[in-house]
Amino acid sequence: MSNNTFGLVARFDSPAAVMHAAEEVRDAGYKHWDVITPFPIHGMDAAMGLRRSLVPRFTLVGGITGFTLGMLGIWYMNAFDYPLAVGGKPMFSPMFAFPVSYELTILLSAFGTIGGMFILNRLPMHYHPVLKYDKIERVTDDEFLIVVEARDPKFTPDGARKLFQKLGAKEISDLEN
């Protein structure tokens, strides 16, 4: 293997097989590895030993920002910068400011959620070694991969290959950077 190696990849043909394999890879103590699947497999996060996603924190920040922005903005615009008396209502009241602040809460929460998802996933990333895998079109269709990266401290080409063979991989191949 050259320095140009990204890692070793094994292909499986059923969700149950890849789930079982992922549990074994996790238990073998690898850190830099991944499972590639065409759809989310229920229970795979536990099989990989992933922690609960951090996306909600981005959502929360977005939501709080949106609500504050709405309330303060409306107070500033209609009560402070240019007081506007309409319909015998107070210049500012959280009542009539609520609908718009609420919408801004949702809007910025959604931005936070989607932005958070892209940031945590480090997307867009149009170039990635996995995308060069020669049967990638099967992996976005009906087959499943496990990739163990060469930078993992426990990685040895033979060790990973033996593990994959033991787990009944359909096909094992190298992946270049």
Binding site: I36, P38, P40, L123, P124, V139
Partner: peptide, 10 residues
Amino acid sequence: MGWRGSNRHW
């Protein structure tokens, strides 16, 4: 956007 079906992404 370079989606590759990684479970860490899912």
